[in-house]
Amino acid sequence: MTPDSQPARITDDDHCELPLLFGRVLDGRGGARAVDWKEAQRWKPGIESEVLWIHLLRTHPGVQVWLETHCAVPEPTAELLTSDANRPRAFREGQALVATLRGINFNPGADPEDMLSLQLWSDGNRVVTLRRAPLQTPRLVADSLDHGDGPEDAGALITALTEHLIDRMSHAIVDMNAMIDELEDETADTYSDQTLDKIATIRRQSLALKRHMSPQHEALTAIANGAPGWFEDHDRREIAESIARLRRYLDDLDISKESALVLQDDIRARAAANTQRTQYVLAVVAGVFLPLTFITGLLGINVGDIPLAQPGSHGFWIITGLCGTILAVELLLLRRLKWF
């Protein structure tokens, strides 16, 4: 492919006048050519190995009507593909496969648990993917097609999309595990309120990711078991491998959540032990000085006939010696009782 024939750089422009974000016609050999919106609407399967893939902005007006008129998608299904009902699911509708999948949100300023939905429809000759917010997975697959090492047919395209979605989930899980390891090293000697905030964030992310990934496991299982005949056996094996990896990631999420909980309990236990130790020291100090405070308070009242108050009685040194003797006796007693 010459530089002049390179496809245009893929961008996610939410303010474009057309619903098409990008389009490709797969050549059946791992490559593809770019198509615009007009060509995508006129496209007909010319060569048996060719497959049309268009990536649409589902919030664009008219997308639902286009799905119904140009792809013969039933109205309820078209409404599902363009709606905000983004819980992962998949089902077969005649010779078409319909799915809603979710991927990690790696957009700037977003949290990983804010997962993005990717709607998908395919009849074997055409693959239509739809999204609302920018999602990197379709662009990665399109880049591989532009370099000639992408999927060859509709089934391989769907498996490539699911594999990229799951791969990017693993990045978020690895980052959480690395953060837990760092926090465990930090809390070996000390901890702070920021540490507890980080642990709470990890627990929240783990719960959110599992809430979305568990139904995605069911959706991929539905694709592997109920996809139409054009979804070939090797595609089902690829999906089965993706399901196994997703299952491992779900187990990793459980481990991350439990590790964060153990770490949080350990920090709280240390904080409680430090508080108890401080209270114990304060109680010992208060017990030591209570008799001394009583004596000094009694002799310090402003009334007549205070003992040892007359000049020449050496009252200060007598009281000081008495307090020192009481202090020594108290310390000896506490030592024998093994209070410190």
Rank of each mutant, 00 (worst) to 15 (best):
residue 5 S to K: 13
residue 11 T to D: 13
residue 13 D to K: 11
residue 16 C to V: 12
residue 19 P to L: 07
residue 20 L to C: 06
residue 29 R to G: 00
residue 37 W to F: 02
residue 42 R to V: 05
residue 45 P to H: 07
residue 48 E to Q: 01
residue 51 V to N: 10
residue 52 L to R: 03
residue 52 L to D: 06
residue 58 R to Y: 07
residue 62 G to N: 00
residue 63 V to Q: 08
residue 70 H to Y: 09
residue 71 C to V: 00
residue 76 P to V: 13
residue 77 T to K: 02
residue 77 T to V: 13
residue 78 A to S: 14
residue 87 R to D: 06
residue 90 A to P: 04
residue 103 G to C: 15
residue 107 N to A: 14
residue 113 E to G: 08
residue 114 D to Q: 14
residue 118 L to H: 05
residue 118 L to Y: 06
residue 121 W to Y: 12
residue 122 S to M: 02
residue 123 D to W: 02
residue 124 G to M: 02
residue 126 R to Y: 03
residue 126 R to D: 01
residue 127 V to Y: 08
residue 127 V to C: 13
residue 132 R to S: 03
residue 135 L to S: 05
residue 135 L to A: 06
residue 139 R to P: 04
residue 139 R to Y: 05
residue 140 L to K: 12
residue 145 L to Q: 09
residue 148 G to T: 07
residue 150 G to N: 12
residue 151 P to N: 07
residue 153 D to G: 01
residue 155 G to W: 00
residue 160 A to Y: 01
residue 165 L to N: 00
residue 173 I to E: 04
residue 178 A to N: 12
residue 178 A to V: 09
residue 179 M to I: 04
residue 181 D to A: 12
residue 182 E to N: 04
residue 183 L to R: 04
residue 184 E to L: 05
residue 187 T to W: 11
residue 194 Q to Y: 05
residue 200 A to V: 08
residue 200 A to S: 13
residue 203 R to F: 07
residue 205 Q to F: 10
residue 210 K to G: 11
residue 211 R to W: 10
residue 211 R to I: 08
residue 213 M to T: 10
residue 214 S to Y: 10
residue 217 H to A: 10
residue 219 A to S: 15
residue 225 N to L: 15
residue 226 G to D: 11
residue 228 P to E: 03
residue 232 E to K: 02
residue 237 R to W: 11
residue 238 E to Q: 13
residue 240 A to R: 12
residue 241 E to I: 09
residue 242 S to V: 04
residue 242 S to L: 05
residue 242 S to I: 05
residue 245 R to E: 15
residue 249 Y to H: 13
residue 251 D to A: 14
residue 253 L to C: 11
residue 254 D to W: 07
residue 259 S to C: 06
residue 259 S to E: 10
residue 260 A to H: 04
residue 263 L to I: 09
residue 265 D to G: 03
residue 267 I to L: 14
residue 268 R to P: 05
residue 273 A to Y: 09
residue 279 Q to Y: 09
residue 279 Q to D: 14
residue 282 L to I: 08
residue 285 V to L: 15
residue 285 V to T: 12
residue 290 L to Q: 07
residue 294 F to Y: 15
residue 298 L to M: 15
residue 299 L to M: 05
residue 303 V to W: 03
residue 304 G to P: 09
residue 309 A to D: 12
residue 311 P to D: 14
residue 312 G to Q: 11
residue 316 F to C: 14
residue 323 C to M: 06
residue 323 C to E: 04
residue 325 T to R: 01
residue 326 I to D: 02
residue 329 V to E: 06
residue 331 L to S: 05
residue 337 L to T: 03
